[in-house]
C-alpha cells in the first residue's frame, strides 16, 4: 500500500470576475509516495506544491482526480489520525502557550490523560522548547513557531508526515535541526513528504524526488536515477595530436585545451563521443582518458523548468 497516491489530480480556480479565464494550478498529477521513504517535492514558488498538499489533506477539493493516503480516500476523517501536517509559515493561536497549543492539538488527535501529557513533554523536549513551554506563542520568534509547528504535526505519532517548506525562514542551525528531525523520522520508519525549493535539502534527505513546475509533475524518481543518463559533458584527454589536426575537431568539441603534449577536449554533446574518438584515432591521436560529467539535480531542476516554461 502506498503512503500517497494521486491520480490525475487537477485543481482549477475559477475567477469570480466574469470573463476572466480559470487558472489551473495543478494538472493531471500522478504521484506515488512509497511507505517509509522521504520524498522531496521540489518546485519553484507558485509551481503548485502548496495546492497539491492542500488537496492531499482535504483542505482544497480537487477539480478532477483522486487522492489516497495510506490506501484510504482523503475525505475519510479517521485517516488523518495517522497524518501529521506542518503548513508553510505556520500560524497558531497566539494567546496559547507552547504547552497549551500542544495539549490542544493532542486532544484533537484523540490523545488524553497521562499519554497526552507524556507526549507533550517529549515533543517539547524534541524541538527544544522545554524552557519556553509556558510562554505565549505571540512572543515566539519565527523559528520557534516552526518548532511548535513540527511538534504539533508529530504529537500523535503519525505514520505519514507532510511538511510544507519546513526549512522556510529558518536560520542555518534551525535548518540543520529540521534536517536531523527528518532523518530521525526516516529511521523510525515514518513516511515523510516535504515540499521545498531548496535543492541541497532534497539531495541530502530524500530517497525520491518529484519536480513540479507550472502545476505539472516534470520528473519523479530516485535522485541518482534522475540525474543518471543525463551526462552533461565528457572530458577526453588524448596524446599525440598535432596542432594542424585539431581544426576538424573544433566542430565536435566545445573547447580544446593543450596541456604539455596532451589535449583536453571537452564534448558538450555526449552522444557524439564515438564520432570524436574515431576522429582522434584517424588523426593519429592516442586516447588517454574519457571522463563523463553527470548532471546535478540542480541542472535537472532548471532544465525541467525551462522545458515547462517553453511548453
Amino acid at each position: 500500500m502506498d503512503a500517497i497516491c494521486t491520480e490525475s489530480l487537477t485543481k482549477t480556480f475559477r475567477s469570480s470576475w466574469p470573463g476572466k479565464p480559470p487558472v489551473t494550478v495543478v494538472r493531471d498529477l500522478n504521484l506515488t509516495v512509497n511507505r517509509e521513504e522521504v520524498f522531496g517535492f521540489l518546485g519553484p514558488n507558485g509551481s503548485g506544491k502548496t495546492t497539491t498538499m492542500k488537496m492531499l489533506l482535504g483542505l482544497a477539493q480537487p477539480t478532477k482526480g483522486t487522492v489516497r493516503l495510506l490506501g484510504r480516500p482523503t475525505s475519510e476523517v479517521n485517516v488523518r489520525q495517522q497524518i501529521g501536517f506542518l503548513p508553510e509559515a505556520p500560524y497558531f493561536y497566539t494567546y496559547l502557550t507552547a504547552e497549551e497549543v500542544l495539549l490542544f492539538y493532542g486532544r484533537l488527535a484523540g490523545l488524553s490523560g497521562q499519554s497526552l501529557n507524556r507526549r507533550v513533554e517529549e515533543m517539547l523536549e524534541m524541538v527544544g522548547l522545554m524552557e519556553a513551554r509556558r510562554r505565549q506563542l505571540g512572543k515566539f520568534s519565527k523559528g520557534m513557531l516552526q518548532r511548535v509547528g513540527l511538534a504539533q504535526a508529530l504529537i500523535h505519532d503519525p505514520t505519514l508526515v507532510i511538511l510544507d517548506e519546513p526549512m522556510s525562514g529558518l536560520d542555518p542551525i534551525g535548518r540543520k535541526e529540521v534536517r536531523d528531525l527528518i532523518m530521525r523520522l526516516r529511521r523510525q520508519g515514518k513516511t515523510v513528504f516535504f515540499s521545498t525549493h531548496i535543492i541541497p535539502d532534497v539531495e541530502t534527505l530524500c530517497d525520491r524526488v518529484g519536480i513540479i513546475a507550472g502545476g505539472r509533475l516534470l520528473a519523479c524518481g530516485r535522485v541518482d536515477e534522475l540525474v543518471e543518463g543525463r551526462t552533461r559533458t565528457v572530458d577526453v584527454v588524448c596524446d599525440g595530436l598535432h596542432e594542424r589536426n585539431l581544426a576538424p575537431l573544433n566542430g565536435l568539441a566545445s573547447s580544446i585545451v593543450q596541456q604539455n603534449r596532451q589535449h583536453l577536449i571537452t564534448l558538450s554533446h555526449p552522444e557524439r563521443l564515438e564520432e570524436l574518438l574515431a576522429a582522434i584515432k584517424a588523426r593519429g591521436g592516442k586516447l588517454v582518458s574519457v571522463t563523463p560529467h553527470k548532471g546535478s539535480l540542480e541542472e535537472l531542476f532548471f532544465s525541467s523548468i525551462q522545458v515547462e516554461a517553453k511548453a
Partner: peptide, 11 residues
C-alpha cells in the same frame, strides 16, 4: 491560517 493545522487533524 490556524484552520490548516486543525482540519489536518481527525476532525
Amino acid at each position: 491560517r490556524t484552520i490548516y493545522t486543525i482540519l489536518a487533524k481527525p476532525i
